[in-house]
């Protein structure tokens, strides 16, 4: 499995931010087995980074690697959807009707 490079943009230490960080950590630990690098960026501290990355909503998760580049906005509370966004399938693959390769 290739290594994941993830950036999570948050705005301040709000409950929404905390929730997103925890959700992401859990998913990564469970699904990626430590094969990931995760950076948390607080927009309030680094507004220029948010400008460069054109972030509007927070929390925003950016999957930089492996390609394709993908954004997931929200507090990542829907695990299935997050996995989909990370191009990972949940445990059982075949029976799903839909879903990308």
């Amino acid at each position: 499995m290739s290594k994941f490079a993830l950036k999570l943009y948050i705005t301040g230490k709000t409950s929404k931010s905390e929730r997103a960080i925890n959700n992401l950590k859990n998913i990564c630990d469970e699904e990626l087995g430590g094969q990931y690098e995760m950076k948390v960026i607080d927009v309030l501290e680094r507004p220029q980074l948010a400008e460069d990355e054109k972030i509007l909503a927070t929390p925003t998760l950016i999957k930089e690697l492996p390609p394709p580049l993908r954004r997931i906005i929200g507090d990542l509370s829907d695990k299935e959807k997050v996995l989909l966004g990370l191009d990972l399938q949940p445990y059982i693959k075949p029976p799903q009707k839909k879903g990308g390769e």
């Binding site: 929404k16 959700n23 997931i72 906005i73 509370s77 997050v82």
Partner: peptide, 11 residues
């Protein structure tokens, strides 16, 4: 871009 859960425009 995908949306999951709540978000705001604080950024």
């Amino acid at each position: 871009t995908l949306e999951t859960g709540v978000y705001d425009m604080a950024a």
